[in-house]
Computed example of a mutant assay.
Amino acid sequence: MVIISEELPVHSEICFCPLHGLLDTISKKWALMIIAVIGNHGSAGFNELKRYLCNISSKTLSNTLKDLEEAGLISRQVVDQTPPVVRYYLTVPGWELRELLIPLLTWVMRNGGHADEGCPIHVHCEMPEK
Rank of each mutant, 00 (worst) to 15 (best):
M1D: 10
I3Y: 07
I3P: 03
I4N: 06
L8F: 05
L8G: 03
P9F: 04
V10M: 09
F16A: 04
C17K: 09
P18G: 05
L19C: 13
L23I: 08
L23C: 11
V37H: 04
G39N: 01
H41C: 06
G45A: 10
G45S: 13
N47W: 04
E48P: 01
L49E: 02
Y52P: 00
Y52S: 07
Y52I: 05
C54G: 15
C54S: 15
N55S: 15
I56E: 08
I56Y: 13
S58Y: 12
L61P: 02
L61M: 04
N63I: 10
N63W: 11
T64Q: 03
T64A: 01
L65V: 06
K66Q: 14
K66C: 12
K66V: 07
D67I: 02
E69W: 15
G72T: 10
S75F: 11
S75R: 13
S75I: 14
V78Y: 11
V79P: 09
T82E: 12
P83I: 01
P84R: 12
V85D: 11
V86A: 07
R87N: 13
Y89K: 03
V92I: 13
G94E: 00
E96L: 13
R98G: 00
E99K: 12
L100M: 11
L100Y: 09
I102Q: 08
P103S: 05
W107F: 12
R110Q: 12
G112N: 03
H114D: 04
A115G: 09
D116W: 09
D116Y: 12
E117T: 15
E117W: 07
G118E: 08
I121E: 01
H124C: 01
